[in-house]
Design a protein around this nucleic acid. Structure first.
Length: 421
RNA sequence: GUGGCCGUAGCUCAGUCCGGUUAGAGCACCGCGUUGUGGUCGCGGAUGUCGCGGGUUCGAAUCCCGUCGGUCACCCCA
């Protein structure tokens, strides 16, 4: 690390190199395929938006308040932009802009950006996959969304992820609950931590989410939303639970589960990885955000969705020894004993035909080329030397057994296909 | 923004407490053992301004100060 002038990836970012990058690629592909099967189409929205798009999401949230990467544009007036810290706001902005027919069901994948101090499972640039479903108010849609998230985690082989479920009530029941909560917390505010006392001013609900030990007592006695639901919200929540029960999807009611974004109401949920012993064990979360589209200038439109953190999910896969990702090995390794030019058309032919091939360079010795062939993981080697050239053949060798035989050059591809089946 | 721990070869680390000739190991890499046959094995090889700067000392990877970076935690969240 004689890193005198060596550049490094910026703090909180990292390079994904093979084979780890292939693993992430496979996870993203798997998610896209799954979402498609539930009727979701992909939305590709900009990496940055007008700063105000995110500010509408909630001024009192950490994400908006202090974790945004803001961009300064040159000579374009007053435009203030920010790298997206999450995608729900972008999706709702896109909905308000294009007014697609509902139900509008989209999935997304890509990097998000938050300016925070990095630590285990927390990066300044991190990758999320997610879905958003806009239009229907139907609790069956909540169930579908949650199910899709659960199935994705299942498909990776994760078994130790708990689904935490809660409801934050609806506009009919929230004011009364908020008043009760605020009154309770205010009465006992001196018992709260300094930070929670501040939080109480901006968003009393989030005080319930404090993990500080000194707050535990107060929080445990606080009134709960589930006890103050409107009839409608209670019914919605019951329907969501019944739907999950019907599918056999397990969950844990978590009455103090509060999500980090202010726009959530009614159903909220979180996927917690029990296998991660780091401080960040939430691998995903979501809920309903029925007022958000309207806040962004669109028609009143209910919405529900989730975002999953791919980086953390892969950490959980490590912890559970799940989801290795695809093998890196090529099918064929071409060993050229002439001057290296004979391998060129062979590789081209093999790759064009849909098989994977690799070779050595710089006129390495035969021994070195065989070593490279071993390392490539190829099952078969094709050897071309002066003898083969003179005879119009290529030698096909099974690298596991050592068996080899010459084949007429024109028959090489079919011989390889046969070897590899 | 606050705090703990850590920076020695490409990687993982020993050496640092009790300063002392050319700074080590394993893995990985390259070559040879076989001028048409690899994986194993054997032999050999290359690679470090010991994060950076300053200080103490006859002498600093080692002690002191500063600084940068990494990491973990708080906070918050994916």
């Amino acid at each position: 690390m004689s890193a005198r002038d060596t550049f490094r990836a910026p703090k909180g970012t990292r390079d994904l190199l093979p084979p780890e990058s292939g693993r992430q690629r496979a996870a993203l592909d798997r998610f896209a395929a799954l979402a498609s099967r539930y009727g979701y189409g992909e939305i590709v929205s900009p990496m940055f938006e007008d700063l105000a798009v995110f500010q509408r999401v909630g001024e009192s949230t950490e994400i908006v308040g202090k974790e945004m990467f803001e961009l300064v544009t040159k000579g374009e007036g007053e435009t203030r932009l920010a790298l997206r810290p999450e995608l729900t706001a972008s999706v709702c902005r896109a909905f308000a802009q294009h007014r697609p027919a509902t139900p509008w069901k989209v999935f997304y994948q890509g990097p998000q950006f938050r300016y925070e101090r990095p630590q285990a499972g927390r990066y300044r640039q991190f990758t999320q996959v997610g879905i958003e479903a806009l239009g229907p108010d139907d609790p069956m849609l909540d169930v579908e969304v949650i199910t899709l998230g659960r199935r994705f985690l299942d498909s990776l082989g994760l078994t130790r992820v708990t689904l935490l479920l809660n409801t934050l009530g609806d506009p009919a029941g929230r004011p009364a609950y908020f008043a009760a909560l605020r009154e309770y917390l205010s009465d006992r505010r001196t018992e709260l931590s300094i930070q929670s006392q501040t939080t109480l001013e901006t968003n009393p609900l989030r005080v319930l989410d404090s993990k500080r030990a000194e707050d535990a007592d107060v929080i445990s006695g606080a009134p709960l939303m589930v006890d103050h639901l409107s009839a409608e919200a209670a019914e919605h929540f019951a329907a969501v639970r019944a739907g999950l029960d019907q599918l056999g999807i397990g969950y844990e009611i978590s009455p103090r589960l509060v999500r980090g974004l202010d726009y959530y109401l009614r159903t909220t949920f979180e996927f917690a990885a029990e296998s991660l012993d780091t401080a960040q064990n939430a691998v995903g979360g979501g809920g309903r955000y029925d007022g958000l589209v309207e806040q962004l200038g669109g028609p009143p439109t209910p919405g529900v969705g989730f975002a999953l953190g791919v980086d953390r999910i892969l950490l959980a896969c490590d912890a559970e020894a799940a989801f290795d990702g695809p093998p890196e090995a090529v099918d064929v390794f071409v060993i050229d004993l002439t001057d290296g030019t004979r391998a060129l058309p062979i590789i081209d032919e093999i790759a064009t035909a849909g098989l994977a091939a690799d070779r050595a360079y710089d006129n390495r010795s035969m021994k070195a080329q065989f070593k490279a062939a071993d390392r490539s993981g190829a099952r078969v080697a094709v050897i071309v030397g002066d003898d083969e050239v003179a005879a119009g053949t290529a030698t096909v060798k099974d690298l596991a057994t050592g068996d080899q035989a010459p084949v007429v050059r024109a028959d090489l591809l079919s011989a390889l296909r046969k070897q590899l089946t």
